[in-house]
Amino acid sequence: MSALDDLAPVPFHDADDRQRARMLSRLADTELSVALLREPAHDQVELQIFDLDGVRMALACDAEDRLADFFGHSVAYAALPGRVLAGLLKADGAGLLVNPGHPSEMMLDAAMLDWLTGALVAAPEEAEARLRLTAPDAGVAADLSDALAERLADLRGLVAGAALVGVAGAGHLGAGHSGAGHLLVIAGAPVDRQPAIAKALAEALAFLPPQPGGVDISFSDTAPPPGALLFDLTPPAPEVEAPRPKGPPILR
């Protein structure tokens, strides 16, 4: 079972929108082995494109042995992150078949890849305002908690923790918002890594159901308000081996 398989308790095309979005988000960050027509030459790759029911598709798996098993023999391949492969195929107008015969099998047509690449350009909006932080709405917390915990776990060791809070303050989300929404506050993040962290989290939010007022991302080490949804990312303490009992005394 792979990380993508773990997100597929039901087949991708039978899953609800939320589950499919989680799988696509994980796919974007997964290194895929994509079948090639021939070995790469001078960093140039030529994808194998198949005609499946009139739809042009490339074929990729999240492990090279899965790709070889599908063909029944070794095959030329390139290892590319899902987000890079989606961009290449979008430019070519082709789709992508992922992990055929496995729990995480996905057949993504050109329209789905277009949506995926659009979601991956999501970026947090910068805004300045006086905000009043509150506990998050229970429904919003329920919608976002699992997916945010999964994404934040990828950042363990880079950030100390996070909190989802409610926020009130006119204009905090820019034009078109009502002035009340939510904020994901990140603690303990190095300043030079904050833009990349914000981008990764904005991508994750782009794959989740839209929330009233939106969800912004901020960095602060101040204590969150009572009732905030907390994500503790402190690395676990190393296990200390219990001292062994001393043996019986040696008699002479």
Results as ranks from 00 to 15, higher is better:
Gly166Phe: 01
Lys246Pro: 05
Ala91Tyr: 10
Asp137Tyr: 05
Ser145Pro: 02
Pro245Met: 12
Arg130Phe: 14
Phe50Asp: 00
Ala147Cys: 04
Ala135Phe: 06
Pro9Tyr: 06
Leu133Asn: 05
Glu64Ile: 11
Glu241Lys: 14
Arg252Asn: 13
Met106Tyr: 02
Ala149Glu: 11
Ile186Glu: 02
Gly95Leu: 06
Pro11Phe: 03
Ala142Thr: 12
Met1Thr: 14
Ala122Arg: 03
Arg244Val: 12
Asp232Asn: 15
Gln44Arg: 11
Ala79Tyr: 01
Val75Cys: 10
Thr30Ala: 04
Leu7Trp: 04
Ala189Cys: 14
Leu183Glu: 10
Ala228Pro: 08
Glu125Phe: 08
Ala94His: 15
Val121Met: 15
Arg18Met: 13
Gly171Cys: 01
Phe50Tyr: 05
Leu144Thr: 04
Pro226Leu: 02
Gly54Met: 07
Gly93Asp: 10
Ile49Trp: 00
Pro243Thr: 09
Arg18Asn: 15
Val10Asp: 02
Ala28Cys: 10
Pro210Phe: 02
Arg156Lys: 12
Ala196Asp: 10
Asp53Met: 00
Asp216Gly: 15
Ala78Lys: 01
Glu39Val: 09
Leu47Pro: 03
Lys199Ile: 00
Asp5Gly: 12
Ala28Val: 06
Arg252Tyr: 14
Met1Val: 12
Arg83Leu: 11
Leu120Ser: 07
Pro212Gln: 08
Asp232Cys: 10
Pro11Thr: 04
Ala242Ser: 14
Pro209Ser: 14
Gly171Tyr: 01
Leu113Met: 01
Ala28Asn: 09
His13Gln: 07
Leu230Asp: 10
Pro124Thr: 05
Glu241Thr: 14
Pro11Asp: 03
Glu150Arg: 07
Leu201Asn: 09
Ala111Phe: 00
Asp65Asn: 13
Ala189Gly: 04
Leu67Pro: 13
Leu32Gln: 04
Ala198Met: 11
Asp154Cys: 03
Ala175Trp: 00
Leu85Lys: 07
Arg66Ala: 05
Leu184Ile: 12
Pro212Thr: 11
Leu96Met: 14
Gln48Met: 00
Leu27Arg: 06
Thr222Asp: 15
Ala60Gly: 00
Phe219His: 05
Val185Pro: 03
Val140Met: 05
Asp109Cys: 07
Val191Pro: 01
Gly247Arg: 13
Leu88Ala: 08
Pro226Asn: 03
Cys61Lys: 09
Asp192Ile: 04
Pro235Met: 03
Pro209Val: 04
